[in-house]
Simulated assay, not measured.
Amino acid sequence: MASVEKLPMLAEGYERMTADLKALRDERPRIVDAIEEARAHGDLSENAEYHAAKERQGQVEASISDLEDRISRAQIIDPATLSGDKIIFGATVTLLDDDDKPVKYQIVGTYEADAKAGRISYNSPLGKALIGRKVDDEIEVTVPAGDKFFVVEKIEFI
């Protein structure tokens, strides 16, 4: 039997995911009502409301399945319980860019990633390049805009 791959995430990402799942489940009855109402209008072949409601139903069910799967595989990690001198999931790292300007990122799960807020996925190119690195390590990452170079200045678990 294949082992189930755990999905590391922070507690806040898990909470947001469960809230999103609840909202989608709460939407189900409204979609069924919309389908029934549209069906009552007669000919379904030219009924835009019916097709839109059916399409939304498919989207909601797919999202529910995806979230249920992610939640079942969630491995909640509290960065405050972590330590060490290497970058791992949950670490907050300060990097110096090409211009010696500091940039700060926290390594998070894919569902929690928000680059503008300084939260990058461990699966992103930069996240993958950072995992396992130490202070003073030099990192090269290829991004759409070209190659970026960083030096790890600080690793924190907060």
Rank of each mutant, 00 (worst) to 15 (best):
D26H: 11
E27G: 08
E27H: 14
I35W: 09
I35K: 11
E36S: 10
R39W: 09
A40Y: 01
G42D: 08
G42N: 07
S45P: 00
A48I: 10
E49P: 02
A52K: 11
K54R: 13
E55V: 01
Q57C: 05
G58Y: 09
Q59R: 10
V60R: 08
A62N: 06
S63C: 03
D66Y: 05
E68G: 00
E68W: 01
I77T: 05
P79Q: 04
A80Y: 04
A80R: 14
T81F: 03
L82K: 02
G84R: 06
K86C: 08
I88E: 05
F89D: 03
A91G: 06
A91S: 10
V93W: 03
T94Q: 12
L95V: 02
D98N: 09
K101C: 02
P102R: 03
P102H: 03
V108H: 02
T110N: 15
A115D: 14
K116P: 06
G118I: 00
Y122S: 13
S124N: 07
P125C: 12
P125Q: 12
P125E: 11
L126F: 01
G127W: 06
I131T: 11
R133L: 07
V135S: 10
V135E: 14
D136M: 15
D137R: 09
E140K: 15
E140V: 15
V141N: 09
V141K: 02
G146S: 05
D147M: 15
K148L: 15
K148Y: 14
F149Q: 13
F149K: 15
E153Q: 15
K154P: 06
I155K: 10
E156Y: 05
